[in-house]
């Protein structure tokens, strides 16, 4: 399926939940969807026979200064097409429903996004820090992050 067909399919099925279809992006076209319905859309994308996005390539958090984005790179092994799905949430309430139930691989990716951006994935079964120590404070990949002076009595900047 082409990007055009996928976006039309989604718009037909989910209506307003599809916030933006950016077909003329400079490199990869993408679709922005509403945060609260991302899990349903994900399930539909995976289950729909014409799309079958069974493979979540990558899940990334992005700090857009004021909003946080979660970007899902999807691929289908049967149809060999790809899709970029995005969710945008305000920085003061960065909550996105988890897609862990759809793609198990999202588990660690979401933990990473939580770890480095502080995006809360609601419904995640095990939302702990993954790369940083469990008692680390702050979310380093945020653009306004400042390295703490000390961590457990050890100087951090060196």
């Amino acid at each position: 399926m082409t990007f055009q067909e996928i976006s039309e399919n989604l718009q037909k099925k989910f209506g307003d939940a599809v916030v933006l279809v950016k077909a003329d992006a400079a490199v990869d076209p993408f679709i922005v969807v509403a945060a609260q319905s991302v899990c349903d859309i994900a399930l539909h994308l995976r289950e729909d026979a014409a799309m079958q996005f069974d493979y979540l390539m990558c899940l990334s958090g992005v700090d857009r200064k004021g909003t946080f984005e979660v970007v899902y790179h999807l691929a289908s092994m049967t149809h060999k097409h790809k899709l970029v799905l995005k969710v945008s949430v305000p920085a003061d309430r960065p909550e996105v429903p988890t897609v862990e139930s759809v793609w198990k691989t999202a588990n660690w990716h979401e933990r990473e996004a939580y770890d480095l951006f502080g995006i809360i994935f609601t419904g995640h079964p095990d939302l702990r820090r993954i790369l940083l120590p469990y008692d680390w404070e702050g979310y380093p990949l945020r653009k306004d992050y400042e390295t703490p002076e000390f961590y457990n009595g050890m100087r951090v900047p060196y």
Binding site: L116, R129, I130, L131, L132, P133, P140, L141
Partner: peptide
């Protein structure tokens, strides 16, 4: 438990 070699490459 991961992260013992974390260098924050992305940062």
């Amino acid at each position: 438990h991961l992260g013992y070699l974390h260098r924050c490459f992305e940062k």
